[in-house]
Amino acid sequence: MATGGRRGAAAAPLLVAVAALLLGAAGHLYPGEVCPGMDIRNNLTRLHELENCSVIEGHLQILLMFKTRPEDFRDLSFPKLIMITDYLLLFRVYGLESLKDLFPNLTVIRGSRLFFNYALVIFEMVHLKELGLYNLMNITRGSVRIEKNNELCYLATIDWSRILDSVEDNYIVLNKDDNEECGDICPGTAKGKTNCPATVINGQFVERCWTHSHCQKVCPTICKSHGCTAEGLCCHSECLGNCSQPDDPTKCVACRNFYLDGRCVETCPPPYYHFQDWRCVNFSFCQDLHHKCKNSRRQGCHQYVIHNNKCIPECPSGYTMNSSNLLCTPCLGPCPKVCHLLEGEKTIDSVTSAQELRGCTVINGSLIINIRGGNNLAAELEANLGLIEEISGYLKIRRSYALVSLSFFRKLRLIRGETLEIGNYSFYALDNQNLRQLWDWSKHNLTITQGKLFFHYNPKLCLSEIHKMEEVSGTKGRQERNDIALKTNGDQASCENELLKFSYIRTSFDKI
């Protein structure tokens, strides 16, 4: 039985969820670079991206490699990797027998973001014989899940209580170790020597080791999670996991709180800001991140802002960003909400898709409305799209047979046209069989910064309504002859009103 693990408890099935942008060198404390989270699957090609990484700022997932063999891993080693800020997950990587050479110096898994409450997941690794993470000293947050690894031993010899604050939620089941077939031998045991430290858990006094050649490092209890030197002297209180010299914040392997210019500090002093819960960055760093993602459509890219001495992905609820200094300031009234469309555009074809934009005031991208039916549609669209004030790209209304009016965009005031449909149009209306009105132009103002209007096959939309939009939106004169079809717009509506004058002759039985 794995020490510190839980057996036999019912657990939810383990679901495996399925960018080499360097964020800056980590400095003297770390020998390499800070790398983003990685999802490495199918083959070993991307694994080489770990070569210079000291910190993975995010998670590391290595999974679904069915053609790899043990010899493929023999020359692979990433000794610079010290810390993973989120979680480490391995799933069905064939041929991998140990992690001792792959990650010989991995010391800390912070667990800032977890995989279903777990910071370390080893699942269905069919050839893994031992973990071998002999320098792993601290899992700051989260638990361990090690399950269905039929060859995995050296679990009962690990004292997880020396690595985690609590072992109650560890789930370590259905491994070879369960069948008591392992016969784990710690260093020196074969020669009758006791080389590794022994600890007591559940009444068992057991030597602690990761492999037959690597003991588990056990520091004096007084050192807590700070770690200790090879001689057993406690590291500085700002260290986490390990250090090369005692009581020196510049000799830590990793930091308990924050890293700044080669030393570990309790908090980031001005003019620095907390970033990702582990390091200090200056304003320029946060500003660069903001600008890199301002026009990016890459998933996970955030326009970072500053709030409460932190550089964070977005302002919290009730705050909006001051564009001059990136500071989050309290909103006066309802907060603006910028919604970034991942692929640059979004099609609204149902109430469900409209709900995804609920509360958005600025759309960074283009909207395509293609709704053919739905219950209580006008009210639903207004509830979900009615706060949109600005669209950076274009607005396209296409084959939306259920629409009679666009009044559900009740606050839309600006279409920038930074991206144009077919390279020309910022407003595009095609084949809307029941569209009769755009907006009530006596109450609604709309500016279209650039781009043209396109109207074709809107049989109940009168040309007068379209011409009014040209005047109000500032697009009059931009359109070419064929942009607004004269014969297919309003051709099934009563669009022309003329005053009919009647004269009559009164007659009676005795007068003409």
Rank of each mutant, 00 (worst) to 15 (best):
P79L: 02
L99K: 01
L152K: 00
T107A: 05
L50C: 01
C219S: 02
T211N: 02
F283V: 11
E124V: 03
H302C: 08
L233R: 14
D248R: 03
S77Q: 10
E49M: 12
T250P: 03
D169P: 14
Y171I: 13
G37A: 15
S112M: 15
C328K: 02
I163H: 04
I158P: 05
C335A: 01
T157P: 10
R298Q: 03
S143T: 10
Y154P: 02
R162M: 12
Q61E: 07
P334S: 08
M83G: 02
E71A: 08
G95F: 04
N257R: 10
R297W: 07
S98H: 00
E180A: 13
L155P: 02
P36M: 03
W210I: 04
D288G: 11
C153N: 00
I306F: 14
V206H: 14
L240M: 07
I56C: 00
C234Q: 03
Y304H: 02
T250I: 09
N149T: 07
Q61Y: 01
D165K: 15
S77T: 14
F115Q: 00
Y304P: 03
N282W: 03
C215S: 08
T157W: 13
T45I: 07
Q276N: 11
S324R: 07
D248Q: 11
F285T: 08
S213C: 14
L96F: 00
L332S: 13
M137R: 08
R41W: 00
I306M: 08
A119L: 00
D261P: 05
N138V: 02
I222V: 11
I146Y: 03
G188L: 09
E33D: 14
L96A: 01
N325Q: 11
L164C: 10
T229A: 07
Y118K: 02
E168G: 05
P249Q: 12
A156V: 11
R263E: 12
I40M: 08
P31G: 14
V305K: 06
E147S: 02
F123I: 00
K176A: 04
N242G: 04
N325L: 09
E57Y: 02
H290D: 03
C182T: 01
D277L: 10
I40G: 02
Y319R: 04
K67Q: 00
K294Y: 15
E130V: 05
C311F: 12
D86I: 05
E207V: 13
D86W: 00
T85K: 07
T221P: 08
D277E: 13
K80R: 10
H28S: 12
G32R: 12
C252M: 05
S324K: 05
P269T: 12
A119M: 00
V206T: 15
D288V: 15
I201R: 07
L76A: 13
C331G: 05
C293D: 03
P187Q: 03
G142I: 01
N138A: 10
N149L: 00
L260C: 01
V55D: 02
T189V: 10
D75V: 11
G132A: 15
T250N: 13
C264G: 00
K176M: 03
I146W: 00
G183H: 13
D277R: 06
F283E: 09
C196M: 04
I82N: 06
C234I: 08
T229S: 11
K193Q: 15
N195Y: 15
E207R: 09
F275S: 03
V206G: 14
C153K: 09
T320E: 15
V218K: 12
V144C: 08
L44W: 11
H127D: 09
T157Y: 06
N202W: 05
I109S: 00
R46I: 01
K217C: 08
L76V: 13
T85D: 00
A190E: 10
N195D: 14
K191Y: 08
D159M: 03
A190L: 10
L64Q: 01
S323Y: 07
K310H: 12
N322W: 02
R263L: 11
G37S: 11
V173E: 11
W278S: 07
C255E: 00
R41V: 00
C239R: 00
K310S: 13
P187G: 05
F275T: 00
D75Q: 09
L44K: 05
V218P: 02
H48Y: 13
Y259P: 01
G300V: 10
S284K: 02
T250H: 09
H290E: 03
F78P: 00
G241Y: 01
G318S: 09
L89N: 00
L50R: 02
E151L: 09
E124H: 00
T199F: 08
E97Q: 13
C255F: 00
I201F: 12
A190H: 13
N308C: 02
Y118N: 01
Y118A: 03
C328R: 01
N42C: 01
V265G: 02
L174R: 15
Y273V: 13
A230L: 03
T199G: 10
K191Q: 12
T45M: 09
R69P: 02
D248G: 02
C234V: 00
V126I: 03
N135A: 08
R141Q: 02
L120S: 02
E130Y: 13
S317A: 06
G262M: 13
M83D: 02
A198K: 15
I146L: 11
T68A: 15
M65H: 08
H236S: 12
P79S: 06
G333P: 13
G227I: 02
E266V: 05
I56D: 00
E231S: 12
D184K: 15
G333T: 04
P270G: 08
E71H: 15
M83S: 09
G58I: 00
E97V: 14
E51I: 15
H212Y: 15
L114S: 01
L90T: 05
P36F: 15
C215A: 04
Y304K: 04
T267L: 06
I201G: 07
H127A: 06
N257T: 09
L289Y: 08
N175I: 06
T157V: 08
Q245S: 07
Q245R: 12
K292S: 15
H212G: 09
I312S: 10
T85H: 07
L332Q: 12
G58C: 02
S296Y: 15
P70L: 09
D277F: 03
Y118M: 00
N150K: 07
Q204A: 13
F91P: 00
Y304D: 02
H48P: 05
R162Q: 14
P79R: 06
F285K: 02
R145P: 02
Y87A: 01
V305Y: 05
F283P: 02
H236M: 04
C186W: 01
D72T: 14
T107P: 00
G318F: 09
C280E: 00
N138L: 04
K191D: 11
S296H: 11
C268W: 03
H48C: 05
Y154M: 03
F285C: 07
T199E: 12
K80N: 09
N202Y: 07
E238L: 07
K100F: 13
S98R: 03
C234F: 00
T320A: 12
R297M: 07
V305M: 06
I40R: 00
C219K: 01
V218C: 14
C315K: 00
L133M: 06
N295W: 14
Y118I: 04
D159C: 05
L164H: 09
L332N: 14
Y118W: 01
T211R: 03
P316W: 01
V34Q: 04
Q216C: 04
T140E: 09
M321V: 09
G142V: 01
L99R: 00
R41Q: 01
L155W: 07
Q299T: 07
G333C: 15
L106P: 01
C153H: 00
K251W: 03
K176G: 06
D86Y: 03
D75W: 08
N202M: 10
H59W: 05
T189K: 06
F103V: 02
D178T: 09
I172E: 04
I84M: 01
I109E: 00
L76H: 05
F283H: 12
F115L: 01
H59L: 00
R263C: 06
V167L: 03
V34H: 02
R279C: 04
T194S: 13
P334K: 12
T199I: 10
T229H: 05
W160H: 02
N257W: 07
D72V: 01
D261K: 10
F123Y: 13
K80M: 10
Y118L: 00
N295C: 09
E130K: 13
C293K: 02
Q61K: 15
M137H: 13
K129H: 12
P70T: 07
V144W: 00
M65W: 00
G111W: 03
G192M: 09
L90W: 07
P271G: 13
G333E: 15
F285P: 01
I163D: 01
V253M: 14
L99E: 00
L89M: 15
F73S: 01
Y319H: 04
K80G: 12
K310M: 08
D177P: 13
H307F: 14
R145C: 03
F123L: 00
P79M: 06
N42W: 01
